[in-house]
Design a protein around this nucleic acid. Sequence first.
RNA 1: CGGGGCGUGGCUCAGCCUGGUAGAGCACUCGGUUCGGGACCGAGGGGUCGAAGGUUCAAAUCCUUUCGCCCCGACCA
Length: 487
Amino acid sequence: MAEKDENKEPAITEITPKSEDFSRWYTDLVRRAELADYSPVKGCMVIRPYGYAIWEFIQRGLDDRIKATGHVNAYFPLFIPKSLLTKEAEHVEGFAPQVAWVTRGGTEELEEPLVVRPTSEAIIGTMYAKWIQSWRDLPVLINQWANIVRWEKVTRLFLRTTEFLWQEGHTAHETAEEAEEETLKILALYKEFVETELAIPVIAGRKSESEKFAGAGRTYSIEALMGDGRALQAGTSHNLGQNFAKAFDIKFQARDKSLQYIWGTSWGMTTRLIGAVIMVHGDESGLVLPPRVAPYQVVIVPIPRGNWRETVLPHARQIRDSLVAAGVRVMLDDRDAYTPGWKFSEWELRGVPLRLEIGPKDIEKQQVMLARRDTREKLPTPVAGLPGRVQELLAAIQQSLFDRALAFQLDHTSRAATWDEFTKTMEGRPGFVVAPWCGDAVCEADIKAATQATIRNLPMEAAAGPGAPCVKCSRPSVSDAWFAKAY
RNA sequence: CGGGGCGUGGCUCAGCCUGGUAGAGCACUCGGUUCGGGACCGAGGGGUCGAAGGUUCAAAUCCUUUCGCCCCGACCA
């Protein structure tokens, strides 16, 4: 048998090449892989079963972690009366341009318009005011899984749609320290989740004043680097201080008998994470899904020969059953209508981490052919001990995806000390550029206007001693900042 | 919301400039041969050209309006 060119990338003609046009590649892929589709509703997408399955794994992984840290789930209304939203001044101002209004019910004008929640601080804060009386009622640690509506002007599948799905945690605490501790605990939880489950390395840090959440005291975020060199905010955790407590009158009687406002936090991650998975791991052949969130971790492609349904298929079924019994998510693609070659390409496009081929030759040798999606390596593997080997490989793929993404991130992170250096480095889509910043919002705005780059966040540990000169204005810096062009 | 581009079977697109009543490839259906990297042969089904209005004997094609989508900016998870 002639040696085949292992590096040959099959042409997926329906998808715009990633190297040619990243945006179109992304959109083509989302649709062709059947993750999501446009709907008749402007700005709203349909999450298709294959995409929703990924969301369900994200939900499960996050929900487990949220509960393991003592939080409980609840559900609050979709509608928020206008008067509630407007209680926190900064909050309304931040969200006013983005809210959808309900002004009629049936044929009657509503006395008070309702907004469709753009986030739930207002409605949840209102309820907390009723529920919290004493320090003994604290902390309140509630999470909600919900849909959110924000009237975005420009939408992109998964990354920004008018309606999206998320989880939002809302907590109330006795002290400022506790609230900060909670905020950071969740930030760390988010980082661990995204890195472990989605194999996406992230930069955790604090948002600048101008980038923080409307109404928050402090916002922290995790930022990931996409394959085109743009950054994506993957999750946020806000320390609300007493802002919302004061606006919504959430008070409790403290241990010293005094009446105090609670200290709040809120935090969320969204269906946007699916977009991040696509843009971080995807390649020219399509999706590459981290095994831990892949709807199918292994696809079995039987090689049809003669009466293969009697000869090959029973073996394939047996292997499937043994893998399923070991807890592996398996798709046995026994469709007649497609050739093996077609199925190889199709499931690569859909990002299945591991392919298992089984044909007459393999059966003779008591083996199967495994093929890794990430490296395209083909591995003849004995049937004996297969489930264990598959689990090892899935773990190895998960790890290698993370390593690869981390290497890419490091490779696309640079430092700039001077303005000249900064502007040169920031040309194109270089990824992260770390540079000292004076802390002045004016400088931040100037930098954005000149280069399109924004401060993604500020490192958690402030540098000791007086900072190097600000990259823009040369005044002493308060901190380094992670700059990038962002989604 | 500003700049640019595009809407023609399910998808990608040709036809439009120079009006004459709709095509290709892929996909789909049926039959057969195939199947270890997107198979082949034969036979079929499917669109009124984003929408509305106008010009004309005649409009996918020309004009006006409108809606939607994509890309780049400003805004955001």
